[in-house]
Every structure is written in structure tokens, then in C-alpha cells.
Design a protein around this nucleic acid. Sequence first.
DNA 1: AGTACCCGACCTTGTGGTCGGTCGGCATAT
DNA 2: ATATGCCGACCGACCACAAGGTCGGGTACT
Lengths: 205, 205
Amino acid sequence: MGAKLGQNNVKGEQTKNAILAAAEQLFAESGYRGASLANIAERAGVTQSGLLHHFNSKDELLVAVLEQHNRDDDALLIGPLSMGGVDVITGLRELIVQNSENRVSVRLFAVLVAESTSVDHPGHDYMKARYDRLRNRLVGALSIGIQRGEIRADADLEVLASALIALMDGIQLQWIYNSQVDMGAAFDLVASALVQSMTGGATAA
Amino acid sequence: MGAKLGQNNVKGEQTKNAILAAAEQLFAESGYRGASLANIAERAGVTQSGLLHHFNSKDELLVAVLEQHNRDDDALLIGPLSMGGVDVITGLRELIVQNSENRVSVRLFAVLVAESTSVDHPGHDYMKARYDRLRNRLVGALSIGIQRGEIRADADLEVLASALIALMDGIQLQWIYNSQVDMGAAFDLVASALVQSMTGGATAA
DNA sequence: AGTACCCGACCTTGTGGTCGGTCGGCATAT
DNA sequence: ATATGCCGACCGACCACAAGGTCGGGTACT
């Protein structure tokens, strides 16, 4: 016993990653329901049985894909959020532009977020929690702007955060259908307008 | 032949509508792939065979649902678009608030738009065309604002339209997950900022 | 008599998942 | 060193089942 170094890993970890990558692609293309374990396994260079050896069920595979992307997302968010205040908004623009290099990733979440609206969908809770987390973080980062006096104190940060997230999600959807759509420009347009109005003193209506 | 009054209608049209309504609900809940003909038929009070009598295939049923909603959408868009100019934006706000009374309808499109990103999805072409149509109409209605001098002549209306549509789509998604999300407020926030910045003369960076 | 409506039985295909087993490497006892 | 035992990786055959769709017929209205 002692060392318990049984985990040979290396080989197993490789194919596991291959499966994860294949699953990511196919879930992004066809959604969770539309992608079959057989397809995923094939693309990963394994049989379906081989796949099931590493992930006990399709649900489990989904969760694994989600968790992996979760970590990536967190890493990407550190930058924009660390700025705090109004810069958060311009930071999000960077994020969206970076994302445009990552078609699969964008598509993965755009597709799964919508598919997971069904309460019985295996990704439902995850997505719901993700929205809450995103909003909370954004609100936190934006509130620094109020302390600094960059943002009007009476601004409703919850609503602002929701709007920003909505804009990102929505523009990504259009971009998937037509890559001519300029995500950066669209975000810039409302971001600059937003900054302008949040810093100024004018109150709507 | 002659009169070709074969279409008894009345009864058939009723069940046909019942099927359409059931399909709308289930597609909205579970998406196209997630909803089964058997479920839809059951909710409509018919057997699966009975359903297939009125719609020859699942694809055909989807198209029928889409087309029906297409007409409704057009009717709803007449108001906001007829205003022209900046008022189009405030008009869209009305639309979004009205939509909040219509959970199924909102959900239907939010779910199907994402699911239809797969090129082989039966709703793909429709959704792609829908985006183009929406953008074009919006651009047309907004361009009136330039003529009137309400909107800066150098404004990129394509981008503006994309951003507005994105905002609507995105906020609806969040609303599905959490009906606490205030769609009207979120839209107002960026709408007012947008109007303020489009009418003013300041040019972004 | 004809036609629209609708059902039940049936078929095919694809699905997620199980089960038993093979192969190869590593650790220990000898 | 070599044999033994064990475990992780992986496959092929198989299964239960639900999916969309076909077909033949029955019923009722006109």
C-alpha cells in the first residue's frame, strides 16, 4: 500500500481528455440531447463502451464538460472583474472579442443555456447557478465604481449586470448564425452609451 | 369537384389548432428534439397517429408552429416599427413587456433559436432568415430617425439593430431562468442610454 | 358513395446503458 | 528473475426502450 500510486493515469487521462474535447464539440454542435454517446466516442477514437468506462453516464459527461469550462470561464473573468468600476464594462468587451476566437466554446454555452431551460435537463441547475454567480460578481465589481464615484450612486447594478450579460449572450447567438455580425462593435456601441449615461448625472424618465 | 368544399374544417381545424397549441407548449418546454410526438399528441387529446394525420412529419409540425408564430410576431412588430426613428427603441420596450405575459411564446423562440444553430436542424434556415428580417426591418425603421435628424447620421444602424435584438434575446433567457429579472428595467436602462448617445453628438473613442 | 377524421398494430432505427471478458502493466512474494 | 495477483483500460455483444413513421381499417358526416 503506502504510495498507492496505482493511478497510472497518463494513458487514461489522455483518452479522457480526448473524450471531453469530442463531447465539447458535439454538445456545441447539436446540444446535449442532439449529441449521442456513439458519435462522441467515435470522434474521440473510442467505442461507446470505452467512453462509458471513463464517464458512467451521459449526464456525468455533461457535468464534466461543464465543470471544465467553468474553470476556464473563471480564469477569463479574473481580468475584467479585477479592474473594478466602469472599466469592468470595457473589460467585458475584451472577453467577448477573445471569445470570438473560440467558436466551440461560445456555441457550447449559447446552445446549452437555452436547452437547459427545461427543469429536468441535467444542466439546468448548473446554468441557473451560473447566471446568479455571473450577476453577483458583476455587481460586486461594478459597485467599486460607485465607491470611486465613477458610477452614479443611484444606479441599479443588478439591472445593469443583467443587461450586460444579456447583451453578450444575445450577440453571441447572432454571431453563431452569421459570423459577419460584429460582436465587438455591438458591445462597444451600448457599452460606451452605458458608461456615458452611468457616469453622467441625468436620470432616466 | 367544382366547389371543392371538401374541407369540412370546423372539427378538423379545431383539433389541428389543439395540436398546434400543444406542440407550441412542448417545444417551448423541451425544445424540438426533447419533445416527442407522443407527448404532443397526448396533450392535444389525440393519438400519435391522429397527429400524423394532420401533420405528415415532425418537421412539418415544427414549421407550422413557426409560421403561426411568425404571423403573430409580425403583428406585434407593426406597432414599434411604425413609429420610426428613436421611438422604435421605446416601442421595443413595450413589446418586451407585452411578451412577459406570454411565457410560452418567449420560451419557444429562446429555446428554438439556440437549438436551431445546428445546420441540420429543421428550423435552422427559418431562424437564420428571421434574424436577417428582424435586423433589416429595424434598420429600416431606425433610418427614419436619421432622416428626421433624431439620430446621428454616422450611426451604424446595423450594429445598433444587432445590439437591440441581442439585448432582447439575452434578457429573455435570464427571465426564463429567473422571473425576478426585470426585462423592462434592463431594456430601459440601455435604451435610454442608447437614445441619449445616439441623439447627442459625442462620438465614441 | 365518398371523404375527412382518427385509431391500433406494427416496423425500423437509434438511444443510453449493462455485462462479461481480454489485454497489458505494475507490485509483491518467492 | 520469475511467477502470481491485481487493477485500470478497453472492447463486443447484448438489452430495453422510446423515437418517428407506415399501413389498413373503422367511423361519421354529407
